[in-house]
Design a protein around this nucleic acid. Structure first.
Lengths: 214, 214
DNA sequence: GTCTATAGGACGATAGAC
DNA sequence: GTCTATCGTCCTATAGAC
């Protein structure tokens, strides 16, 4: 009966700090997407990492700190993906998204690319959908993040919409609303519809005024 | 110093059960709209009612029971409002919404009326926005409610869309997505825009194919 | 119809051993 | 880098007095 060493939780070996941090962010992303920030406990996250809560807290200074880390990580990933899609040189896009999108981009193509990417990562879409609603409350730790994000997106889209219409903010807002709306319906029943196809049909309507019928 | 009676919490007198229940539902609606179901505790709700938690639990059998009561109450209110707006006789609309909307209704008018009503009650819109996202998780107590609700709305809207297009489910989905999307943007910054006006502009685009230009 | 008291657990976070 | 142990708080819910 005398087990010598106290041994690590389960059979999981120590991980280098960087790898552990990566794992924690991935697990937290997944769980927060499922249940929202208030619906997840540090215990839940620690369990899925094969850690105790204090073990988890050596890598993240608090629960709120963990949420911030998750959101920052998403920005880094998104910026990387955008850079790849648009070509590195002209798109600066640092971690806070810089001041806008490059002017040479076509709005309709950008939207289509975004929806195509989103269709491949429902978990991330869900993370943002759930947190966007939860963080409407001004005291929510992600409130400012989402306020800023929405302001940025509205401005950037409107700038790109200028070559379509003289009311670019209006088109920008309709586009964002339609994208968000289609996404939440898709999340509720992913089998029922094809997000990309659904967007394509909607885009035809939204952009119809601005394209020459063939 | 000898205060005789233990006295009621604060200065609030006993309320008849029905009035108390009404108060509890109103308070819970408001708090859940702000913070989501997982973000609110029974203590929070009891405090705002001037009750202790056991006092609260004499009127609602559990926290989940309270959420159900809130949602059922919304259905009753919505059905009442719809009956008023459409005229009592043809719209049956029992508490579970029956099997559809009366065929005589014009879809575009119905949407406009809905958005006008929603614009006057941001708190209710927020309740549904927050819970719709939170309840994507299949184990959430409101999951089935929202799944059913979305299915009903999609069917009902599609039926009314039949006189506009031969792809009514598509138009119905675009309408619902746009309404939901505009609402969440409006909730984040209610000062910035007029929900009714915003919808009117979007509706012109969505219905443009089906109306004769004057 | 509302209270006090309390059970019994989960929560976020810290201290200190190894 | 991870553990055990623990603090103090908050949670939902119940028992029983008035």
């Amino acid at each position: 009966m005398a087990e010598g060493a106290p041994a690590l939780r389960r059979d999981r070996p120590r991980l280098p700090a960087a790898a552990r941090r990566r794992q924690i962010i991935d697990v937290a992303t997944s769980l927060i997407a499922e249940r929202g920030f208030w619906g997840v406990s540090m215990q839940d996250i620690a369990d899925r990492c094969g850690l105790t809560v204090p073990g988890l807290l050596r890598h993240m200074e608090s629960k709120v700190g963990l949420l911030i880390a998750v959101l920052q990580d998403r920005d880094v990933q998104d910026a990387r993906s955008l850079r790849t899609h648009l070509g590195t040189s002209e798109a600066e896009l640092p971690d806070d998204w810089g001041s806008g999108l490059p002017g040479g981009v076509d709005l309709r193509q950008l939207c289509a690319a975004t929806m195509q990417r989103n269709a491949t990562q429902p978990e991330i879409v869900r993370l943002f959908t759930v947190l966007a609603a939860e963080s409407l409350e001004p005291t929510h730790p992600a409130h400012d993040y989402f306020a800023k994000r929405q302001r940025f997106a509205a401005t950037a889209y409107a700038a790109l919409a200028e070559k379509f219409t003289d009311r670019p903010e209006l088109l920008a807002r309709q586009i964002m609303a339609m994208m968000d709306g289609l996404q939440i319906h898709w999340l509720r029943d992913p089998e029922a519809t094809d997000l990309v196809q659904e967007w394509e049909t909607a885009a035809e309507v939204l952009f119809a005024r601005f394209t020459t019928p063939r």
